[in-house]
């Protein structure tokens, strides 16, 4: 079942992502999507579907089993539509040669040592997640909430910290967040324990996605420079390893609290947002903002992704106006 869940983590989001990216960016001339971009986009849709099932069940006051059913039904429907779309597209474009990004074997070979080092480091980090039990529970109740949903078959009816009915209730801002339902659905569908899904499978997936997101960002920053891309990713891996000393560092979140919405936002969504900004993929930037609102308590949906996006555009526009003036001044002085 662990292998099956691992495969589901790759195949389902990939199909979602491939379909969505093809719909929105299929007509672009430049081919700058790689399989990781599809996977990252697909994960955002995966989380979106979990949010839809969570909200539907919660507002209709139905049981958690209904939430699982809705999650399965939504995923199967979307999966069917995606397969149908991709199949139809393949039929229509069968004769045409698809533009694929050219893999520069020689450039890759020049820096293979760095890639090997990065791969080794990534593998060691993923292994470390499975060897120990280093969960950092301060300020978070996700594992207890998932276990409570599964046991009581209700959503937010019982205080997950004590197992007793709420006397004062829980704030709506937290009730609407979907991650506990998402993890609970995965536990129920694949018959796995809360511990295994929340403390092992999800952090592993998040760490893998974080590397993919940074690889995507490297591709956006250095489109044709393999050496810089390799050094960039190696540095990211080293920074993840070194940054486990403080609880708002990316490395700390990935190693000790990979299941938290904040970790996913900081290590996966923000790099995707940056990468999408540099590649002018505005729809993906919007998807990042929506995904954050599904997982992290934000100001009515306005989270950090939105603020970073606005900040980047403001900087871009200000520089666009100022930069020619500055260059002109510099030229006059010299």
């Amino acid at each position: 079942m662990i292998v099956l869940l691992g495969l589901a983590f790759i195949i389902i989001p990939w199909l979602y992502g491939k379909s969505v990216c093809t719909i929105f960016y299929g007509r672009r001339k430049e081919v700058d999507f790689f399989w990781g971009d599809y996977l990252l986009t697909g994960w955002m849709i995966f989380i979106g579907l979990a949010e839809a099932s969570h909200l539907g069940t919660m507002f209709l006051r139905r049981s958690f089993s209904d939430c699982v059913f809705l999650f399965e039904a939504l995923n199967l429907s979307v999966l069917f539509l995606c397969c149908l779309f991709l199949f139809a597209r393949w039929i229509f474009h069968r004769g045409q040669k698809e533009k694929k990004p050219v893999f520069d074997r020689q450039a890759f070979g020049e820096v293979r040592l760095i890639w090997i080092g990065t791969g080794l480091l990534m593998f060691t980090m993923l292994l470390m997640l499975w060897l120990g039990d280093y969960g950092y529970s301060k300020g978070d109740v996700t594992p207890e909430t998932v276990a409570t949903f599964l046991h009581t078959d209700q959503i937010h009816a019982v205080n997950p910290l004590t197992g007793m009915p709420y006397t004062q209730g829980i704030p709506m801002r937290l009730q609407i967040l979907c991650l506990p339902s998402f993890y609970g659905c995965l536990c129920r569908i694949f018959g796995l324990t809360t511990e295994l899904v929340v403390n092992r499978m999800i952090p592993t997936a998040v760490m893998f996605l974080a590397f993919l997101a940074y690889y995507s960002l490297a591709g956006a920053l250095f489109p044709k420079d393999h050496r810089k891309k390799a050094i960039f990713l190696l540095t990211v891996a080293i920074l993840f390893g070194l940054g486990t000393y403080f609880d708002n560092m990316d490395g700390f979140g990935l190693f000790y609290a990979g299941y938290r919405g904040l970790t996913i936002r900081n290590t996966v969504l923000l790099p995707i947002l940056l990468s999408s900004f540099f590649r002018e993929r505005r729809i993906l930037m919007l998807l990042c903002v929506i995904t954050e609102a599904c997982m992290v308590w934000t100001l009515y949906g306005a989270g950090l992704c939105l603020l970073v996006g606005i900040g980047l555009y403001l900087t871009y526009w200000v520089l666009w106006y100022l930069y020619p003036v500055l260059r002109k001044k510099e030229g006059n002085e010299s």
Binding site: P143, T148, N159, L161, T162, G163, I170, P171, T194
Partner: peptide, 29 residues
């Protein structure tokens, strides 16, 4: 801290929000 994840059927006299002040914003209990 750990009992409710390992055995979600059992109840606790108090939760860890009693001493972990970071959790105060998560419920009104």
């Amino acid at each position: 801290e750990n009992a409710r994840v390992l055995r979600p059927d059992i109840q606790l006299l108090y939760g860890r929000d009693l001493w972990q002040t970071d959790l105060n914003g998560l419920s009104y209990e």
